[in-house]
Design a binder for these strands. Structure first.
Lengths: 254, 254
DNA sequence: GAGTGGTCTAGACCACACG
DNA sequence: GTGTGGTCTAGACCACTCA
């Protein structure tokens, strides 16, 4: 039985496709350009559409492509750097904070938050919704949890739920001392509500940044921020005095 | 034509499946337990295998499941926290560094590294391969690039390629002053070589941590470390003096 | 060799954006 | 309406692990 293929290591088709298309993106396409549609591409490469899609999914995961239903597949710009350095010792909502408050309501905390904060499961927690928009694009959605016990003054806020209340809560936070914070980054998939804020489909890959804020020796608040993994690169500020520059990002003229 | 479904918002099947299975994992399964195989699960839920797989892929992405060809699908333990705090102002290979050197060779640097380092594209770069293993599991694979221009003493190293040479290069690094470093985290997919070190298939989702080391006001070295996104949570050390504890992680007795 | 997850096919229909 | 990507099906074969 002669084998038809000479390859001793049969690389999956979608993997090979990904390489080929990836190289084509570098050489034959410019940022923002629209690719042929999936059916056409599949036909051109002689594979089933599902296989072609597997390759495109990988490229999208790597931030090389952007796909939108009803529109098409475009070449993505380089990922934007988003500074999440923990060196800024300040509460959320401090002056210069680019996040936009969206809403605030009191609610029972999810289990994960209860664990991180060491509060009672039934205790109500002030939950502030914020989003981060850069260059007109939604970049991240955050839920900030502040147990009533941490900042008793919050009970006095009379604004109903909504942006006004969110602002009040954040303003109240600034009055307190911040001892420190710690941070963790992991991969996740967007919940339905986050996906909506981020203009993505539910399940889209996101980088989940969990921050704990400490005051008086205990965790006083927790923030869970989900960043679009396709468009973002999280940066942690330089320890030295060197200015960081992402050269590929510079060109934007045409 | 009456619609058969009453749902006004037809949630995708795989999304619903993911929720159902996710809840089942919490209530009916223990860590390490083997799930029924994909064909059986698909039959039980009355969906095609491809649809079932879409749900499992999501759960694997979130670190809830672990799938291995020829073996089966098991319930994954909670992600392990891996400290990548930039506050440790030291070169790679410093005492206490848990990374294991694997190899070292001189080679032309990839384009991305050339950009980060501001070296000539044709200049040879010392490339050190290291891996990080925790609790017997491969966690991350790293490529550390040191241009000859940064550390001239490296030319004097006579060890051929291999672990010995890697150790010599790292040892030489310690003699130099480290001005600072900066770090970025983004989502990527494992290249074939990294996948092999990480015991995963090529294309597996990884967290790519890029670190630049500065000395004498310029970037002297770059490290590109790829962490298994399914099993890792990257942590950035506390700014305060509070000890962080990942409760689920503590138990390891048996 | 039996059983597992991984790849691939060739279709179909759906939800969405846009003209 | 037309065209796009997103979902879903019912098969098939392959690569791998393990007894």
């Amino acid at each position: 039985m002669g084998t038809t293929q000479l390859e001793s290591v049969p690389e999956p088709k979608y993997w090979h496709l990904k390489t080929v298309i990836g190289e084509a993106l570098d050489s034959d396409f410019t940022v923002g350009e629209i690719l042929p549609n999936e059916r056409a591409l599949a036909a051109r490469f002689g594979v089933a559409r599902a296989t072609l899609r597997q390759a495109l999914e990988q490229l999208e995961l790597e931030g090389r492509l952007q796909r939108r239903r009803g529109v098409g597949t475009t070449v993505a710009p380089p990922r934007m750097g988003v500074d999440v350095s923990t060196s800024t010792h300040s509460w959320p909502g401090a002056p210069g904070d680019a996040w936009q408050p969206v809403d605030c309501r009191a609610a029972a905390a999810p289990a994960a938050v209860v664990r991180a904060l060491d509060v009672d499961g039934d205790e109500d927690v002030h939950t502030v919704r914020r989003i981060l928009v850069t260059h007109g694009q939604p970049v991240a959605a955050e839920l900030l949890y502040i147990p009533s016990g941490s900042v008793p003054e919050l009970s006095a806020i009379d604004a109903p739920s909504g942006v006004a209340r969110a602002r009040s809560v954040l303003r109240e936070l600034q009055h307190r001392l911040l001892d420190g914070q710690d941070r963790a980054v992991e991969l996740g998939s967007a919940r339905a509500d986050d996906a909506k804020e981020l203009d993505r489909l539910p399940g889209a890959p996101v980088l989940v940044v969990t921050t704990r804020y400490y005051t008086e020796g205990r965790a006083a608040a927790v923030s869970v921020a989900t960043y679009r993994a396709d468009t973002c690169r999280l940066t942690f500020g330089a320890s030295g005095d060197v200015e960081i520059r992402h050269d590929a990002q510079a060109r934007r003229a045409s």
